[in-house]
């Protein structure tokens, strides 16, 4: 194997390990941190089913964003939906051997890449031209969009222009990562750029705003059932405090405690 292929292989593993450890730590942290009070925000579901539906709508339709800003919603949704199609299309590289039928069905949706790119350009435009959004943007916010744009463009260059790469080789390489059967990688510049930036993206996932992906499921204003009067909701630390009588209103505290 060439040095280049070895380096990229190593980097993939490193970034993947960072991703898994980082995300696990974050998800465990969110899981372990109690939500001591009931704080769902209207329109609140009164049942667990209602909550599940609410989260499904947030994740698939970006319901709240739709209410607040139509332009952001259009661009944001195009980007994410495009990304979703693109990622499904990518499964074929990692699947060792024959790809199941179902994934072949989405292969024609290669134009998802354009949805993704248009969305990203729109979001970038908004960030640059709307004074309010510019005010709240840090360099990392632009860089994140640029990163995704370059990944998308380099990918699209391979898919839609004559600068193809040897996808059979890529498949061998990528599925080899999973089966520990490492192999050579084609060396077109556009592919190397694509892969290097993807490696970076995976590595920064747990330390950046990409934490919105697990976070959206943990948001207490969205995932709580509005049933505070019917069920006693109490966190572990508050219960301990109650048991230990830590909160005392000195002399005037009710004797019932």
């Amino acid at each position: 194997m060439s040095v280049l292929s070895l380096v990229i292989t190593a980097l993939f593993y490193i970034s993947f390990i960072i991703f898994v450890i980082g995300m696990t730590k974050k998800i465990l942290q969110y899981w372990a941190t109690p939500a001591p009070l009931k704080i769902p925000v209207a329109p609140t579901p009164l049942t667990r089913t209602g909550v599940v539906l609410r989260i499904i709508r947030e994740v698939t339709l970006f319901e709240s964003l739709f209410k607040s800003s139509k332009w952001t919603w259009i661009f944001g949704w195009l980007f994410h939906f495009g990304l979703f199609l693109v990622l499904i299309r990518h499964i074929r590289y990692f699947w060792p051997g024959e790809v199941p039928e179902i994934f072949l069905l989405v292969q024609p949706f290669k134009y998802g890449a354009f949805a993704m790119l248009i969305g990203l350009l729109g979001l970038m435009g908004r960030r640059i031209f709307v004074d309010r959004v510019r005010y709240i943007s840090a360099p990392s916010d632009y860089i994140m969009l640029a990163l995704l744009l370059i990944i998308g463009v380099s990918g699209a260059v391979m898919t839609f222009t004559s600068n193809h790469t040897d996808v059979v080789m890529v498949k061998e390489f990528a599925s080899g990562l999973i089966t520990f059967n490492w192999s050579e990688l084609p060396t077109e510049l556009q592919l190397l750029v694509h892969l290097l930036l993807v490696i970076i993206l995976i590595a920064i996932f747990p330390i950046s705003k990409l934490l919105h992906v697990p976070g959206v499921f943990f948001s207490p204003t969205r995932n709580q059932v509005d049933d505070a009067r019917k069920k006693r909701h109490i966190s572990s630390w508050a219960l301990d405090q109650e048991k230990n009588n830590e909160v005392r209103l000195d002399q005037i505290m009710g004797e019932d405690e």
Binding site: Y30, T33, S64, S69, T72, G76, R127, I136, A138
Partner: peptide
């Protein structure tokens, strides 16, 4: 904890 982490600065 979650709110401090997850804001994507979408501006909505």
């Amino acid at each position: 904890q979650v709110f401090l982490d997850v804001c994507v600065k979408c501006g909505a």
